[in-house]
């Protein structure tokens, strides 16, 4: 034996799971929605996505090189994912400088200023989106209607409102369920196709990247509260950013609760807040606000919603 033996405490084997494999798993799960966005919105979707991703990577690189001077974490895929998710929350005709501002807020303010991945309180992409929504409300709420515009030109196309406006009685026509499901409507580029997002959900469940608890409890609570508030549950489920939010944003590891019971509570409250905002708030869409609000409650949920300890409740039989 030429070399020295390694000695470490048990366990001596590892599952091989890593931060980057989880992040890239989520990115793969986003591919169907990305394809759908290009199909519906054309070149605009591509440029917005590309700009957001590039800006996020650049900002993370700059912060780590000049401010934090820590270990580079660019290759773990989390900045890439933040960029993708941010762009999915933006309209495809958004001016690119606004996209870059969003990326700056997401990475520099919401993620790196807290100490990087793992320490952020809020979902970075959502912070970016909400910042833009408040700062640039006009640009953020006019969308090209999916599938109607000439997809591969960047000239001004017909813009319309999401399906949430008619749902709220703000004018406009109600769409068919099929259009809602496949995404033939106005909206941010990644959120329109519930079908594509659900494929991603199935993929993440299969790869065990996330568990079903958060998305399913959001779906259930949205449906139940919609019924209670005498709204159309199916329309609420498939319109706006709900699918994207429930599957990809609320399940963000860092800002969601740790225990299963906590996850369900978190999901139910997100659904409830979303419906409240959609029904009674000033904004037609409430998913982002609901998730951010619940992000801030996550530490409290973690403190009180403990997993069931072994032997705590003795069940016989």
């Amino acid at each position: 034996m030429s070399r020295k033996l390694f000695v470490s405490p048990s366990p001596h084997v590892h599952s091989g799971d890593s931060v980057s494999s989880n992040m890239y798993g989520v990115i793969i799960a986003l591919i169907p929605a990305f394809v759908a966005s290009i199909y519906f919105f054309g070149l605009g979707a591509l440029t917005v996505t590309f700009t957001a991703v590039a800006a996020c990577l650049l900002f993370e690189f700059l912060v780590q090189k000049y401010l934090i001077k820590g270990e580079f974490t660019l290759n773990d895929g989390s900045a890439l994912l933040t960029g993708l998710l941010l762009s999915f929350n933006l309209p495809s005709n958004l001016p690119l400088w606004i996209v870059i501002i969003g990326a700056f807020v997401s990475i520099v303010i919401a993620k790196m200023s807290f100490g990087g991945l793992g320490n952020n309180l809020f979902n970075p992409a959502l912070v970016g989106r909400v910042f833009l929504l408040i700062s640039f409300p006009a640009q953020m709420t006019t969308w090209p209607v999916g599938g109607t515009a000439d997809r591969f030109t960047t000239v001004d196309v017909a813009t319309g409102a999401t399906h949430l406006m008619p749902l709220k009685g703000m004018g406009g026509d109600l769409l068919t369920y099929a259009d809602l499901f496949f995404g033939k409507m106005g909206g941010s580029l990644g959120e329109v196709s519930a079908f594509a997002l659900l494929i991603g959900f199935a993929f993440m469940l299969w790869r065990k990247i996330i568990t079903w608890h958060i998305p399913v409890s959001i779906f259930a609570s949205v449906a139940i509260f919609a019924l209670l508030l005498k709204a159309d549950p199916i329309a609420h489920l498939f319109s706006g950013g709900l699918m994207l939010g429930a599957i990809f944003m609320a399940t963000d590891y860092v800002s969601s609760p740790m225990s299963k019971s906590g996850m369900i509570l978190y999901g139910v409250l997100i659904g409830f807040l979303t419906l409240l905002i959609r029904k009674y708030g000033a904004y037609p869409e409430g998913v982002s606000f609901a998730i951010l609000l619940m992000n801030s409650v996550t530490p409290i949920i973690n403190m009180y919603m403990k997993p069931k300890r072994f032997g705590e409740v003795v069940k016989n039989g």
Partner: peptide
């Protein structure tokens, strides 16, 4: 002299 490598 070191005789093994601690990896914990």
């Amino acid at each position: 002299p070191q005789t093994n490598e601690y990896d914990g």
